[in-house]
Amino acid sequence: MSSTVLTRLLRSPADIAACCREDRDTRAIALTSLIALVLGAAVFGGVIGSFRGGAQIAFAAVKIPLALVATLAVCAPAFHALAAGLGRAWPMRSIIALVLAAAGRSSLVLLALSPALWLLFDLGIDYHAAALAASMAYAIAGLAAIGILVRGLGAGPGRALTAVAFIGVFFAVGGQSSWILRPYLVRPRTEHVPFLRSREGGFADALHRSGRSAAGIYDRASAEGSGLRSLPETTRDVGEAE
């Protein structure tokens, strides 16, 4: 792990992005970003898990980096193909270094926000406020990642389209990975916390169902069909936690 790369990742994202684009120092950037990504996401996960405490701290500390790494592993070949198709036929290592640098920087932002989130939990905010605070932290970290990603794509035609395509693929894959690895934020009163929830459809199904619920349309039949209604109280508490 290079402290120089770490400093540049935080202070000179444009420089790191240029290095990835021009295929310079990709090994050091990828390695440092990977370590930053795992450590930063693990600490943030631990803080998220601390809302309930106990085993959930370890579970979330393992699952958040796992979800992120799994997402990037699945997305990297797609990013490579998308970039090549949209006029940026770069080596695979450049694309991987760029997305790792973006994810590494976002994880460092999550790491920086962890103490503040921990303080909020300690002040006793409720479940929904905690979920909102965690989402805000993710949004800020995501902006930090997009900063490197867009700079890394460089000038030229198709830049915006490539960035949108990258983000679209990342959200689709990341959403499903995160959905599979639920729960992360769990209510304190939940007695038994599973490492993984039982399967209840996919991320897209959940988005569709939530969208309809938000519009006041409750699909009782589909909920019963998916087994939600038959879940015991403690598990449903966990189910609410995402």
């Binding site: 090994r27 990828a30 592993a73 699945v74 991987i96």
Partner: peptide, 21 residues
């Protein structure tokens, strides 16, 4: 982490040094 690390580690010798340019 082979899906992310192997393409970088196996081909990094073709990458240029940082200050070369």
């Amino acid at each position: 982490l082979w899906p992310l690390w192997a393409p970088v580690a196996l081909t990094s010798s073709r990458s240029r040094a940082s200050s070369t340019w």
